[in-house]
Structure formats: C-alpha cells, structure tokens
C-alpha cells in the first residue's frame, strides 16, 4: 500500500534523508528505529505533507497514487494518519468539535454519509473508554493543558476515530510511563487488522514489546542500514546504536 523508493529529502539545502526505500503491505507493522537525528521524524513529516521539506529525488506511492502530490488534508482523507511526536496544543478549539469535523471530512471524501451527533458520540465514548479517558476531555481544547500521556492517548483516540488505512506513529512511546504505554499500545493493537498498515517510529525497543512488529528497519544518518524481523530490535537493544553506526561507517 505504501511504496517509498529511494527518497531523498533536504531541509534548507541540507540532506536529511539520503535514499530511503520502504514497502508496506496491508496488515503489516513496520518499525523504524534509529538514534536521534537519523531522520525518523523527517520521514513521518514528509509522508504527511508538512511544509519546509524539499524532496530532491525518489518517489512515494500510496494505494497507487503519487502521495507527494497530495495536500496534507487529502492524504488524511485518503486514510493516512500520523500520531505526532509532539501533539499540538490548540486552545479554544473544542476537542469534540474538532474530532467531529475531522471524522466527517474523511467520510464525505470517501463518499459516506456524515455521522449524526448520536452515532458520533456513541463511537467516541466507546473509544474513550478503551483509552481510559474521562468525559471532561470532550469539553477541553485540543491538547490544551494535557499532560504528555494525555496528549499521546488523544492521538491514539483520534486514530481510532479516523480509522486510517495507514497509520504512522512517530515516537508515540517517548515520555510515557509504563501504564500510559500499555494503554496506548492496547489502543493501537485493537486497531490492527488484515487491511491496516502501520509504520511505528521509535527510539526505544521497549515499545516493540507491546506493539510487536513484522519488520524492523534501522535508520541511521538518513539511510536504512539494516532490515529484519522483530528479533532485530532485540539485537539492537542489546548492542546499542553504536553497533549500527559501525555498520554505517563500514
């Protein structure tokens, strides 16, 4: 469903991604691991259409379409979802209104009827229960005054509501204690199915104990230097990123 081919990306003339290739099929969970500055977040930003990145070569195809040609909202409506590393606080934009607008924008785009208020609330309450969020959350501004854990749970809630075809998780585990990590992971695992693809970007192997990947890729200095199964993550944890930098230099 997602084919990234030899993707090279620069910011202000500095090359960050130096030729990435990745092939995600429906139902697969790919983990991308790497040290700080390896280009993990750049990859997620480019895939979701954030401004300020120059794609200098390569291509990204999503469900047969040229992804890089699409506006961020088009990508979202076509089923791509990014759980942000740093979710944005938007004071004054009510969480519930925001979610409703997002859900219905996608439904209209995909030729479905808009959800009425009752169906929307039913679906929302069910997913909030799963993520152990209380009702007060509905009336608050998007991420306004949320703790780190609440913000990440809110990302997963949005993901659950938007039912993406391809979900990108950008360091969703960073800054979470074990309880919050468990809740978020349960949320993600409940969404795993044969159609839905996941790209899980993380700095720590720990997350992959909870969200078990089919493939692990190691990113260093803008390149995927090693790919393998879930065991690769364990090996990486044991030997540290220094091991990878050794491979990269070699």
């Amino acid at each position: 469903m997602l084919q990234v081919k030899d993707l090279k990306v620069s910011i202000d003339g500095k090359e960050i991604l130096k030729g990435i290739s990745l092939d995600v099929k429906p139902g697969e969970v790919h983990a991308i691991m790497g040290p700080n500055g390896s280009g993990k977040s750049t990859l997620s930003h480019v895939l979701t259409g954030r401004e300020g990145y120059d794609v200098t070569s390569g291509s990204v195809s999503y469900l047969g379409k040229d992804l890089l040609d699409m506006e961020p909202e088009e990508r979202a409506r076509e089923g791509i979802f990014l759980a942000f590393q740093y979710p944005v606080e938007i004071p004054g934009v009510n969480n519930m209104y925001f979610l409703k607008a997002a859900v219905n924008a996608r439904r209209v785009h995909q030729g479905m009827e808009e959800l009425d208020a009752l169906d929307f609330m039913d679906s929302l309450k069910e997913k909030m229960a799963l993520l152990k969020m209380d009702d007060s959350f509905l009336k608050r501004g998007v991420n306004e005054g949320f703790s780190g854990g609440e913000k990440k749970r809110n990302e997963i809630l949005q993901m659950a509501m938007l039912e993406p075809k391809l979900a990108l998780l950008d360091e969703t585990d960073s800054g979470l204690d074990i309880d919050a990590l468990q809740i978020c992971s349960d949320g993600v695992n409940s969404l795993r199915n044969k159609e839905r693809g996941f790209v899980v970007i993380t700095h720590y192997q720990r997350l992959l104990d909870y969200i078990v990947p089919d493939f692990v890729h190691v990113l260093a200095d803008g390149r995927i230097v090693k790919s393998g199964g879930k065991d690769l993550a364990l090996e990486l944890e044991e030997k540290g990123y220094g091991w990878i930098e050794g491979i990269d230099a070699a």
């Binding site: 961020p72 909202e73 944005v88 938007i90 997002a102």
Partner: peptide, 24 residues
C-alpha cells in the same frame, strides 16, 4: 502554522483549519 498543519493532517482543509483557529 503548526496548528494549521495539525488540523490539516486530520483531514480539515486549509480554509476550515484557519477558520477554526481564528474563531478559537
């Protein structure tokens, strides 16, 4: 602009995202 992008990444079009933030 970060907030605009955040809203767009959830499927709101550019105009709607800006309106929502303005009203907020």
């Amino acid at each position: 602009e970060t907030a605009v992008f955040y809203l767009r990444s959830r499927g709101l079009d550019n105009e709607a995202a800006r309106s929502l933030l303005t009203y907020a």
